[in-house]
Structure formats: C-alpha cells, structure tokens
Amino acid sequence: MNAPLIYALTGAALFVFGVTGLMLQAHLLRKILAFNVMGSGIFLVLVGLAQRTGIPDPVPQAMVLTGIVVAIAATALALALARQLLDQSGEMRLPEEEAGKDKLDV
C-alpha cells in the first residue's frame, strides 16, 4: 500500500464518518462539525489521489483552497441559522416533521 492510497482511504473514511454524523446527530453544532469532517475527508482524497507520480500537483491544491473558502462560508451560514433557531425556539436541534404533513395516514 503506497502513501497516496493511504491518504485517499483515510479521506474516504472521514467522509463516511462525516456523512453518518450529519445524518444521525440531532444537535445542530454536531451536525455542522460533522459537515466539516466530511469536507476534510473530501479534501484529503482530492490532494492524496492526485500525487501518484510522486510530485505534488498544484491544481488539486488550488481546488482544495477554493473548497476551504466555500466550507467556511457554509459553516458561517449554518452557525448563523443555528443561532437564530436557538433564539426563536430555544433549542439547538431541528423540530420533528409536523405529523401528517409527509404521511398518508387517513
């Protein structure tokens, strides 16, 4: 097993952890952290896979920089929304779906 593959597999594992957390954690702060873990996993795959020739490739590094900027903006928006939700409902979690809205119970 060579180094790029180790990076890529670690990245894939982080992605899976992140997605699982994003879906299963109820607390919004944990969801936002899970999103960042997922993002780091993707960036690791992007940089790791591309250096197979042994020479670092600048293109994916530029892409990861762009990706980090996007992730920061998304995290900031998520935190602002979570804060507003906390102010208005007093809870850091999403309310359950309203009963009957997405169900066919007659």
């Binding site: 890529a8 969801k31 896979l49 994916p60 998520a78």
Partner: peptide, 23 residues
C-alpha cells in the same frame, strides 16, 4: 437549516466524485 444541511450533503457527495475523477 434543513435545506442547508441537505444541500451541503449533496454538494459534498458531488465534490468527492470530482476528486475521484481528477484522481
């Protein structure tokens, strides 16, 4: 908030696909 989490998950999966293609 629900929309944001769904859309971030969606673009995350998309970007991982891009990473694999580039790899």
């Amino acid at each position: 908030m629900r929309y944001l989490l769904a859309t971030l998950l969606g673009s995350g999966a998309y970007l991982l696909g891009v990473a694999l293609l580039y790899g």
